[in-house]
Structures are given as structure tokens and as C-alpha cells.
């Protein structure tokens, strides 16, 4: 699979942010909750490269952790929902009408509520839990892979090419490898890139309305709310989570290449 220039740009942006996160977590001398009450809301300087927040905590450490948390959630959700959705999408076509209908009912139930509302309800059950967020977001996201994979697979199953391989005696795995996977792979990739962006966005949104990851953990949406009151004294602080969220989402959108 060859990437276009803009896709490379997106990938580089994401890798850059990941590197920042990994280096920040491993190399920064400050933890995310370590307070320095003598250095509150200080601008970037030699000790605190990105400044400190209203409790005197190192912004560099907090940003590195927050980005790491976002990527971890994004990647986990993408892998889970892509595997589940693709597998079920292909199965729905191949396993016959009954399975297809059962899955259609399940999907209809999940589509009856906007994704964010489902995630919010799950978040209410276990406030601040990363794993509940992960389960809720994956639960919402696999549906899209399922729908797309199912639609494309339906076309491939009917195609002369697949039919011809079947007649020549090739088995199920061969037909998947040669016919179905090449047809669905580009769409799965695009969905995965958008899915990564959406997972990160959803977590930030929940943090922003204060029902996601809880303090004192660092999370981009939560940091936006926490730092908002200091927008005039320390605008560089509020800018950090806002810019990083936009960069992460933009990176994933560029990587997707196509539009959803």
C-alpha cells in the first residue's frame, strides 16, 4: 500500500506527537501531580519547558501523559473495533441469512442512540474509568466497520471473480485473502484513521464536560476546562491542549487520505 504525500505528512505528525509523549513520560523529572507552589502559572522556561499550571505542575509532563493516554485509547479502540467489525461484517455475508439478520438487529439497536450519548451513559456507570471508556467507544465504533465491510463483501461475493475462484475449487481462506480483503482493506484503513481521531475526540469531549477521566490525571479535554479560567493570565497554557487535540485529529484525517 502506497501512501500519498499528505498521508505521509499525517503519519509524521502522529509519530512526532507519539515521540514527544514517550520522551516526555520517560525523561521528564516531574510527575503529573508533583506541585511546586513557588512556580504557579509560570511561562515556559529552562526548568519547565512548557510552563506550569495553576497548581505549579509541569505542563510538559502533563501534556506528555495526556497525549499518551489519548493515543493508547485511540489505538486500542481502533484495533478492537476494526477487528470486531470487519470479522462480523464478513461473517454476516458468508454465514447466511440468519446470522445476517441477527447482526442487523444488534446494529439497529446500537444505531438508535448517537454514539456520544451511549458513551456518556457508560461513563455514568463507572466515572473516570479508562477501561469503561474503551469498551463504550469500541462498542460504538465497530458498527461502522461492520456496515462498510458487509456492503463491500456482499458485492465481492456476487462478483464473477469470486464465483470463478469458488468454481475452480479454491477454499474460504483463499477467497478471503485474494478477493474480499483486497476489496475491503482500503476502506478499513480509512475508517481506522477516522476512528482513531473520533476515539480521541470522544475522550476529550467527556473530559471537557467533566464526566470522563478524573483529576488529578492529565487528559486533554479535562485540561482544557481546568486551564480555561486562566486564559488571560496564561494563554499559553490553554493553547497547549487545544492545539494538540487539533493536531492529533488533523494528523489522523490526513492519514485517512480520503474522506469518510
Amino acid at each position: 500500500m502506497t501512501l500519498r504525500a499528505s498521508q505521509w505528512a499525517g503519519l509524521s505528525l502522529l509519530i512526532g506527537l507519539m515521540l514527544f509523549s514517550v520522551l516526555g513520560i520517560t525523561l521528564s523529572p516531574y510527575s503529573i501531580s508533583q506541585q511546586d507552589l513557588n512556580a504557579i502559572l509560570v511561562p515556559p522556561n529552562a526548568d519547565h519547558w512548557l510552563g506550569t499550571d495553576h497548581f505549579g505542575r509541569s505542563m510538559l509532563s502533563r501534556m506528555a501523559h495526556a497525549i499518551g493516554l489519548s493515543f493508547a485509547l485511540g489505538i486500542l479502540c481502533v484495533v478492537t473495533s476494526a477487528l470486531l467489525g470487519t470479522a462480523l461484517g464478513v461473517t454476516a455475508v458468508w454465514a447466511g441469512k440468519r446470522v445476517d439478520q441477527a447482526l442487523a438487529i444488534l446494529v439497529n439497536i446500537l444505531l438508535a442512540l448517537p454514539g456520544l450519548v451511549i458513551v456518556l451513559l457508560f461513563a455514568a456507570i463507572a466515572p473516570g474509568s479508562f477501561w469503561v471508556l474503551y469498551i463504550a467507544i469500541s462498542l460504538v465504533q465497530w458498527v461502522e466497520y461492520f456496515r462498510v465491510t458487509r456492503a463491500i463483501t456482499q458485492g465481492v461475493i456476487q462478483s464473477p471473480a469470486r464465483q470463478s475462484s469458488n468454481m475452480m475449487g479454491f477454499g474460504t481462506w483463499y477467497q478471503f485473502k485474494r478477493h474480499i480483503w483486497p476489496a475491503i482493506a482500503p476502506s478499513v484503513f480509512t475508517l481506522a484513521a477516522f476512528g482513531g481521531a473520533n476515539a480521541i475526540l470522544t475522550m476529550a469531549s467527556l473530559g471537557f464536560v467533566y464526566v470522563g477521566i478524573q483529576p488529578p490525571l492529565a487528559e486533554l479535554g479535562l485540561m482544557t476546562v481546568e486551564l480555561f479560567p486562566f486564559y488571560s493570565e496564561a494563554p499559553w497554557l490553554l493553547a497547549q491542549p487545544l492545539v494538540v487535540i487539533a493536531l492529533m485529529v488533523f494528523g489522523f484525517h490526513l492519514l485517512a487520505g480520503k474522506r469518510a
Binding site: 462478483s159 464473477p160 471473480a161 470463478s164 475462484s165 468454481m167 475449487g169 485474494r178 478477493h179 483486497p182
Partner: peptide
Amino acid sequence: SKPYQWLKLYQDPPSAFTSSV
């Protein structure tokens, strides 16, 4: 004869092959 000895030639040649390989 085996099942794979009953075959079909299609109207639109490109649609009868996968382009992935």
C-alpha cells in the same frame, strides 16, 4: 468429472479476475 471441471467464462473479462495480484 470433478466439480472444478464445470467452469464458466464471463462476459466482462476484468470483472472475472482479482486485480490484487
